[in-house]
Design a binder for these strands. Structure first.
Lengths: 190, 190, 190, 190
DNA sequence: AATGAATGAGCATTCATTCAT
DNA sequence: TATGAATGAATGCTCATTCAT
């Protein structure tokens, strides 16, 4: 009976995860305004009732999406941060991250932003958003000296990414590297 | 005949402006996800058909809202920027702006962010969003030395504001002033 | 438990049939241009959501109406065809059918024509329309010798009926019988 | 003043004709259900108010469309009928007409059918529809012997055309010629 | 625990029509 | 005579949610 329960629980958790994945896909494709139980059910290939069963309201769906988005993003950040050698150029690292965000991961990155911003309006999303923030800063801080500098770097990175996303034109790596270098210099050098 | 024609034109323009105002109100109250022709019509106290007559689609409504939001925001920025005396503390200026944004103007500021971010997804909004960006930088640049510094300051200011909006707690002026001072110091190279 | 399940299934099917019936009624009363989910819901005495639940689009509604119309029409044709005795006058049979079509069944006959013609424009209706055609020919063919003759008879019958429907005046049985007799004579080669 | 009045009247008539043309185009493109003043105005490249000014109701628009459709169709029929030499194959003539109707003129032919059938439901369309009918028969009759035969031929031609239009597959000339030959033979030969 | 049938509310949008000019 | 601004009604459709199973 233990194994059957575990099996059930595991299946339930898997399904929850499938649905969370589908939330990100739906937001990426249709925008947060286009997030509905129906579309999530279709994207996750689960019955409609399954989405409302596991996530009763749209808010619950958004929380699941935001948490999974944070998890994925932080995993990726940790991976690239760990790959940094002591003398590596931090500005180059941030530059490449930014470029990847607005090109290869464009769609999911937009979805992440929409879910994150929604935390302003929907209190239920705030804990997940704040956790994401804090951990992101914790990952970057060691490479920039302190948490305040890391925070500034995050904001600059985000602002630049949004600007690039809105411009629609492909990013100019040289220009971005210049900006990032200047930023890193001012944050660590002074 | 000139006056009658003018009256007509003016009435139409006034109505368009009333509707744009209502767009911001509706987004502030219900979020971008809650923006509908019906709510706008009610908020603007105009017939439903009037909203679709002047702004055929939801996109048009969002454009009008974004443009008016930018206009208001830039006017306010210009006003406070012009009030700055040569020796005034730039960091204090940015600090007070940030605090106002997340307190007194909280609702409309959130609406502005939602409309601005939507420009990523909705190409029709991009020109207005980019114009807003550019003019904002132009206003701040003279006080920070160059456009690149101004851009960084904008991003930091935005990032900080979002963090404060999500935190839900009242802003700590001293702490923000510290952050802003450090930012301004590193940007102006002192 | 079987009965409860059956009851459920049957209720759903019954409701679908009620709605299909209502489609024909609405088209008969308001024309195909006046076919709307709302009117169908009202005519079928079901909630509006029930029509869109069972028939997602207007096309689906039209398909259901066309299929039921064909079913009814074919049943009636089979019935009168089976009632024919070997030596009976085929021309008289076709004459009476035509007259009934444009008098007693005028409204539903018009509805059938509108639904049928719509198959030209709406591919989703074509299978039902073609099935109707084929089965009608199959019913008439044995009485006229071959399928080609049956097809010609169908077309003539339809053309005549439309002419009568447009004329608005009551049909002249003698005249129609003359036309039908001549038609049957030329088709059967006598 | 005479010339200016004539000019006006002529301009008015031209515009009416432009609008009638646009009616057929709109019905061809969007179906009779998609006929609206707005679409007609756009297709005719005239102001919206011009359509309601010259044709107050949708019925008036449909009448204008039906009349122009009949006029065009009859002109074409007369032209090909006059081109017939005494010994020419009538069946071949009807075959080619049918094939042209369902291929080259498919869209406008569908529009004609929709407008014609609407005469059943809309009394205002009946005079135009009946006139069309009568004149068509008058054109064909001389080549088939009498009006009754011509009428039958018309119905068969229409029925066949509709069948071809619904089938969606390209017409098989040999097969159609066979059918038409048999029809003509039975109508003229017996 | 899990599902899909069912429904009333609400949506963006289109429209015929009116009317001032 | 001719036009386009204006509006209330209506449409197809989608949806969150409820509920029986």
């Amino acid at each position: 009976m233990g194994s059957s329960t575990d099996g059930r629980v595991l299946r339930g958790q898997e399904r929850r995860r499938d649905i969370a994945r589908a939330v990100i896909d739906v937001v990426a494709t249709h925008g947060l305004r286009g997030l509905t139980h129906r579309r999530v059910a279709e994207a996750a290939e689960v019955p409609l009732g399954s989405t409302t069963y596991h996530f009763e309201t749209l808010d619950d769906l958004m929380i699941a999406g935001l948490e999974l988005a944070a998890e994925r993003n932080l995993a990726m950040m940790r991976q690239t941060a760990e790959a940094l050698a002591p003398g590596d150029d931090i500005a180059a690292w941030l530059t490449d991250l930014t470029i990847e965000m607005v090109t290869r991961w464009r769609e999911s990155n937009i979805a992440e932003r929409e879910l994150y911003l929604e935390a302003i309006r929907t209190p239920a999303l705030r804990p997940a958003a704040q956790r994401w923030d804090d951990e992101l800063v914790a990952i970057i801080a060691p490479h920039l000296g302190d948490r305040e500098a890391a925070r500034l770097a995050c904001w600059a990175l985000d602002g630049l990414a949004v600007t690039l996303l809105i411009s629609g034109s492909p990013p100019d790596r040289d220009r971005i590297l210049d900006q990032m270098s200047r930023l890193v210099a001012s944050l660590t050098g002074s």
